[in-house]
Simulated assay, not measured.
Amino acid sequence: MVKNIGIQVKAPKKTCNNRYCPFCGSLSLRGKLIVGTVVSHKGKNMVVVEREYSRFVVKYKRYERSKSRIHAFISDCMDVSDGNKVKIAECRPLSKTISFAVVEVSE
């Protein structure tokens, strides 16, 4: 059974028994929604998502490209590989570095 998480995303086709899954468990989401690319999927139930953005440098009056890496929780009901575009949502801290959860995978 997949529940409504309050965000307009495609629900996963599979189900899981993980209590930290936003769709099958009891993890609530709040705050930011970020779109990025999966860089690493080596950890257990964790992915590293990289997002690129431009920021203004006042001294030179130009923009520079920057990127940041965010650790996000991934549940068992989603299939993710390196290079996939994902949408992550902010949640409560799940560990020292994980405060986001993957809510949608787009190929």
Rank of each mutant, 00 (worst) to 15 (best):
M1P: 07
K3F: 02
K3H: 12
K3I: 06
N4L: 01
I5P: 07
G6R: 09
G6L: 08
I7P: 02
V9F: 09
V9L: 05
A11Y: 07
K13Q: 13
K13I: 10
K13E: 15
N17R: 12
N17M: 06
R19N: 13
P22S: 12
P22W: 10
F23V: 07
C24I: 09
S26R: 13
S28D: 14
R30V: 07
G31I: 10
K32Y: 10
K32F: 05
K32N: 14
I34A: 06
G36V: 05
V38S: 02
V38T: 04
V38W: 03
H41S: 14
H41Y: 07
K42D: 15
N45T: 01
V47P: 05
V48Y: 02
V49D: 04
V49T: 06
V49H: 04
E50Y: 03
R51P: 00
R55V: 15
F56A: 03
V57W: 01
V57F: 02
V57T: 08
V58T: 11
K61T: 00
R62H: 08
R62Q: 14
E64N: 02
S66G: 02
F73T: 05
F73A: 05
V80E: 08
V80W: 05
S81H: 12
S81N: 11
G83L: 07
N84Q: 06
K85P: 00
K87I: 15
A89D: 06
E90G: 12
R92L: 12
R92Y: 07
P93G: 04
L94V: 08
L94S: 08
T97L: 13
I98D: 06
V103S: 02
V103H: 01
S106I: 14
S106W: 00
S106T: 12
E107W: 04
E107V: 06
E107L: 08
